[in-house]
Design a protein around this nucleic acid. Sequence first.
DNA 1: CAACGCCTGTGAATCGTTTCAGCAGAGGAG
DNA 2: CTCCTCTGCTGAAACGATTCACAGGCGTTG
Lengths: 341, 341
Amino acid sequence: MPASIRDVAESAGVSVGTVSNVLNRPEVVSAATRERVLGAIAALGFVRNESARQLRAGSSRTVGLVVLDIANPFFTDVARGVEDVVNPAGLALILCNSDDRPEKESAHLDVLAEQRVQGVLITPTAELTPHLRSLRRRGVPVVLVDRRAPAADQCAVAVDDVLGGRLAAEHLLERGHRRIAFIGGASGLPQVQERHDGVEAAVREATGAVDELLTLSPEALTVAGGREAAARIVGMPASRRPTAAVCANDLMALGVLQEMVRQGVRVPDEFAIVGYDDIDFAAAAAVPLTSVRKPRQELGSRAARLLLDEARGEGHVHVQEVFEPVLVVRESSRVRRTGGR
Amino acid sequence: MPASIRDVAESAGVSVGTVSNVLNRPEVVSAATRERVLGAIAALGFVRNESARQLRAGSSRTVGLVVLDIANPFFTDVARGVEDVVNPAGLALILCNSDDRPEKESAHLDVLAEQRVQGVLITPTAELTPHLRSLRRRGVPVVLVDRRAPAADQCAVAVDDVLGGRLAAEHLLERGHRRIAFIGGASGLPQVQERHDGVEAAVREATGAVDELLTLSPEALTVAGGREAAARIVGMPASRRPTAAVCANDLMALGVLQEMVRQGVRVPDEFAIVGYDDIDFAAAAAVPLTSVRKPRQELGSRAARLLLDEARGEGHVHVQEVFEPVLVVRESSRVRRTGGR
DNA sequence: CAACGCCTGTGAATCGTTTCAGCAGAGGAG
DNA sequence: CTCCTCTGCTGAAACGATTCACAGGCGTTG
């Protein structure tokens, strides 16, 4: 139904080749002809059919971004960084949400493969699914976001999460906390594991023992997950109950905070909280959250640039970029009545 | 480079038509042949080329969603609602962010038109741009989200924002506030205008005068915009300074709250705040925000269903759905020392 | 035994764009 | 006047999947 390039050609009295030239290399067409063709295009309301163009070109002008949780502002900030790079390059972004579920992730990857996207940016679920591998084997560039590459044969943009965990824990230890909880999801994400390892190492060095570290694994890395973990902590006997928690992300930290407030536990006086990601809302929370800051937007833009470079081919060198996180101290861990246990 | 349907046909010793049948109407192919073809598909790692399929079909298996601010959780919740409807229908979602800028919006619409999307869901910028009109004229279904349709010739899913504004204002008036501010962006969005009108009507009815309503229009409907407005309010002489504000969305309300806290103004004792949208973070704010709740996810899913219905053709009836907002009272407007002026 | 219908499968046309070899005509050089 | 070059345009092939009219093969029926 919509006008095709042939209709335009007919209406302008030229061949389809000429119309295509007007569209793609206007400089090879004489000014008079160009005007005539552009006039016909406007008159007919012609819009290029991307499918046909793609069919010919072999790949589309889109890239895919698959995130773990679209409701987590961390990922929308990453997406914004990606957009800032990808749109100016004339590419559209297909944003997919896996909800940390491998099936959804696979389904999205299938769609992206069928769309012949230029490449895929992804924060994968725990296991690198076979879909992801086969995508790469098929020659589709894949850049991991907020996750280290398992090998040097692909690009990845990550954050030193062991360091991040360590920063968070050392901060609490300095404030005199000894019984510390690490609250991470049950999903088994390596990023979360690394944060845990950083916390654990710091706790061991400071206390000489690891059993001071309580690890809680609520269902999901969400506000609800944080509430769940907090409820369990409050339910523990006071003698064993931790006095502070490092959370695997800010959403969980907000959940912990909410539940603590609800249960009448004063934060930070009775319980200190450190979040992770430093999303904008962390600073606006009931008790402003201490958090481990990651360069969210830059994570996205850097990953997108690497992807475009790889898609362009020609001597692309795989890069594993690792950003350093920074601890931002706010109210939720500020005070500490008593030192030691 | 990737295997085509022809390679599969060759490898399985059948014609391309048969392969296509296996893919699209497996029931017309004998079991033996089907197995053989599926085997070849697996062996070659064949993936359908959507471009080719679309070229033939005339339209793609995607829908577009254009939002005003991807960083606003309200819109990610809407997006989630859309996804829940659209993915099960076998369609992919292209999520675009206009940042409330007509040029970006137009650029995104161009891309979506070239992609031959099945339809577009959009929360448009202030003016309905010519691009949007021409899209509709070209027969692409367009459903407005969180915005009323200017005429009955298209679908729209909105919220009664006059009522929302009224609910917010009446609540504050009941609490004894008389000098009230309305904080909305300068973008001229009708949704915001309606909220303003609702507030204004309520104020007029209660006080008999409109000049009790101070309207502030910061640059953008963001946290920063809220801070900016709050700073201006604090700078006013106490005699004329409002004692409460209705904000056009929760992000601004959070900004107002932050700035008030920073300036040492106690909320709600010295200044009450009501937000709009009731995003999840509203309840988790430093002072939990009273807010006007909209059915965020349902807004998206309803809009998506209408879009799919319209795309399917066959006796589609345009629907203008208007949801009723509900006031959720929390700490930010709870108390009020003194009544009246 | 012929006629018929059903079941499978074939092969060519088609979608709209890009690309490229090649052609007409103008202008310049000899 | 012929030969050559350059500019501007043409026309057809190609991309990969879908679709549809149709062709064999086989069993059934009268």
